[in-house]
Computed example of a mutant assay.
Amino acid sequence: MKRLIAYFKKETVLCVAMLLGVVSMFLVHPDSQYPEYLDYRTLALLFSLMTIMEGFKQTGLFGEIAQVLLTRVHTFRQLYLVLVLLCFFCSMWITNDVSLLTFVPFTILVLELAGLQKEMIPVIVMQTIAANLGSMMTPVGNPQNLYLYSVSGMDMGQFLLIMAPLSVLSFLMILGACMLHKNFTLDARCLKAGTTFSDTIPGMQKKGENSRKDTRKQQNLLLGVLFLISLLSVFRILSWPVLLLIVLAGCLCLNSVLHGNFLPKKVDYSLLLTFLAFFIFIGNMKRIDLVRDFLDQMLTGRELLVSFGCSQVISNVPAAILLSGFTDQYAALLRGVNIGGLGTLIASLASLISYKFFAEKQGQSPKCGTKQRYLLQFTLWNVGMAAALLLAAFMLS
């Protein structure tokens, strides 16, 4: 029982999605239409991109980039901007959760070694916001974008036309928030933090181990090629079955020739299973006239607000999957679930990553501040920026 409770706490969204899927199967019994519920293209793209990002996490590429940038800062404001904007721009391509998994531990170590624990809350809070908002710019920035881009049939130009104005406004707000923070000169302690961090990331080895560095470069090169090939499939130049074959072949090459882990074994399949469960639930609900008519009426003309509000309760990825089955207003839905990543701690599951890292460190070092203070600053900044972006979205619609 304890294991079941622990698993439910860890994978709450998946468990709820599975429960909804199973209950819906009693209302609409499995038949020949079930396979039509699934969006195979989205599932293939998600699997491929998660596999490639897992590879980059293991090689430590993004940690190395951060380490190089860190040696060029001289004031706290510069450090603040580097740590936050790394999350903003990297999340556009490596997803918001991978960005936070990579850079939040880096930030905690840098601030701790530099004696700046009291700055941990504002920096991590702004990193979380930056990752969630930066990821809205591209179809591969987060799972909801990839899904809506796929099911809507829109092209890249249409996607950018919808999301670019909000992304620019988000960048300006984040930049302004960083500039408002007090500034002071840094000692060489931060440089020490940057060099020490290289020993803490899987895949990053001590200096002098040239053979391992060469292998890591080869791994990153192959992963980079696989990522570019994935983009061809995202932009509908390459079919998803071909992409799957190429990615699996690349993983076998990494495993056998370049002595890396077999990456598909490391993928977080809970997200894929969540998508599957919601596909079944939505497919069944669309076949129940009463439910379909109710959701159609509720959504009509309110897509932006309903998708934002729904994201606050069940998070933006499930909200995107659920509501897309009952509306074709994808522009409003896309804006709503992306802005909906701001707000509550569960509005974007990526936000929980940052909070868990902070909570763990706070338990070890009270100098970092309290969890209550973290949640207060997180909520204030999230609500303020969400309100500004919602106003902008209404003006654009």
Rank of each mutant, 00 (worst) to 15 (best):
W93V: 15
L4P: 03
F89H: 12
V151T: 04
G260R: 08
C310D: 09
L244M: 15
T327H: 03
L272I: 15
G309C: 08
V98I: 13
I282G: 00
L248K: 04
K2R: 10
N284M: 01
T195R: 09
C178H: 06
S354V: 09
F62P: 07
G340F: 12
K206D: 07
G283F: 01
F56V: 09
L223D: 00
K206P: 00
N382S: 13
L148I: 11
I314V: 10
M173C: 14
Q144P: 10
Y80R: 04
C178E: 11
Q205T: 13
C253A: 13
Q364E: 15
S348W: 04
E119A: 09
M385W: 08
T138N: 05
L272K: 01
L45R: 02
G63F: 11
Y330E: 06
F357A: 12
L146K: 04
S198A: 06
K10R: 10
L146I: 12
V151P: 00
G153N: 07
V337M: 02
V68N: 03
Y374S: 02
N261W: 03
L223S: 00
Y374K: 00
L276Q: 02
S198P: 00
L258S: 05
Y37K: 00
C90Q: 05
L45I: 13
K9D: 12
A114I: 06
Q144W: 14
N96V: 08
H29K: 05
N261F: 06
L61F: 14
T215C: 14
I65L: 14
L69G: 15
I108Q: 04
K265F: 11
N210S: 12
F281V: 04
T102W: 11
R302K: 09
L222Q: 10
G60H: 08
M156A: 11
Y330I: 10
F262S: 09
S348T: 08
Q218M: 13
A164M: 14
V68G: 03
A130C: 12
S354T: 11
